[in-house]
Design a protein around this nucleic acid. Structure first.
Lengths: 194, 194
DNA sequence: CCTACCGATCGGTAGG
DNA sequence: CCTACCGATCGGTAGG
């Protein structure tokens, strides 16, 4: 328990510093990727040398996994809350998409690096990431199952297409034009096919 | 001219070897990413030491850019050919999607690494990649412009969604179940909204 | 294509 | 949190 609880801890002084470091790391990982971000980069942003970070974290790998899990935890909570107040299947899906996109597209958020760049990560890390992501995707499996879709639509493909849509939105999104929830509305309008 | 012509060259002996190295590099970059692939990795697959590769290529950066451009050249050619025999706007889009997916999902192809992991690449490389990709996307801009879409659909968003769909298909695609063209049909069925 | 090497950078640690 | 360092690995090169 509280394995991925970034907000609080037994020791408030140490935890504030730790959380600050996690936020910096999340931003750098999101911007430069796992391999493109060195511990010295993170230290520089935090105002310390790279080696000093190891007082707060165990390893670069563990840091990355923790951030990834925290992001998915936050997304799950936000989605569960958004879906709870909706009854109609399409409305539930729309609420989930908007909640996820809101998190994915938030700048400077702890929850940004829900990454797809599983390629550049060590094997041991990738296994953990994939296991967590698979659990996360269960939410969408269930939401898609409830949808009244024509029989010629493959729901497995449909779900994967929808998820990759939501995950890669940050690749092309530039804020100013449309808000995350407007993007979500466009996605659902397409996927709703009406 | 013939800057990205991987198939032929003035010297057939040297070119065969070079092409082999490019194919190996493409597979490794696609699997492990730019930073996750070392010149020594590529050399190992080719049966030589890393340093020996520099007889055939100028630098890792140049190699990566060349592969990326070659992939987009091949995709453009394939798409242009597939679209040419179609008249109806939706049929043209469907043909383009199928052609692109066929390339994206082909295993062990030179043309695989049409990547999204622009994050982990040096700035100078990323600029070239993005410039080439923007040119590539013009095809889809034109295809989407011709589509009879309801007015509440934003065509810019629509195009980005479609492209990110096609680009990230390789993340979740597992062959055996559906063929690339069947995936393309599913995508178009959704985006066609009918 | 290899030997032999370069300067740089990496994740991480000991000891204070 | 720093100093000082480790072994490993990186892209790349000279010279043959």
């Amino acid at each position: 328990m509280k394995k991925y609880d970034l907000a609080s801890g037994a020791n408030d002084e140490g935890s504030g510093r730790r959380r600050q470091i996690l936020e910096i790391a999340a931003q750098l990982f999101a911007k430069k990727g796992y391999r493109g971000t060195s511990m010295r980069d993170i230290g520089e942003q935090a105002g310390v040398l790279g080696g000093s970070l190891y007082h707060h974290i165990k390893s670069k790998d563990a840091l990355f996994v923790e951030l990834h899990n925290a992001a998915l935890d936050a997304a799950e909570n936000s989605i569960a809350h958004a879906v709870r107040v909706q009854d109609e299947p399409w409305a539930r899906l729309a609420a989930a998409c908007a909640a996820l996109l809101e998190i994915q597209l938030a700048p400077d958020s702890l929850t940004m690096p829900m990454m797809n760049d599983f390629r550049e990560v060590p094997d041991a890390v990738r296994e953990q990431l994939i296991a967590r992501r698979d659990r996360f995707e269960e939410i969408f499996r269930s939401l898609v199952t409830s949808l009244p879709l024509p029989p010629h639509i493959d729901r497995s493909i449909y779900r994967n297409l929808l998820l990759s849509q939501l995950n890669s939105a940050s690749d092309w999104y530039r804020d100013g034009r449309l808000s995350p929830s407007e993007i979500a509305a466009q996605i659902v309008a397409i996927f709703r096919r009406e």
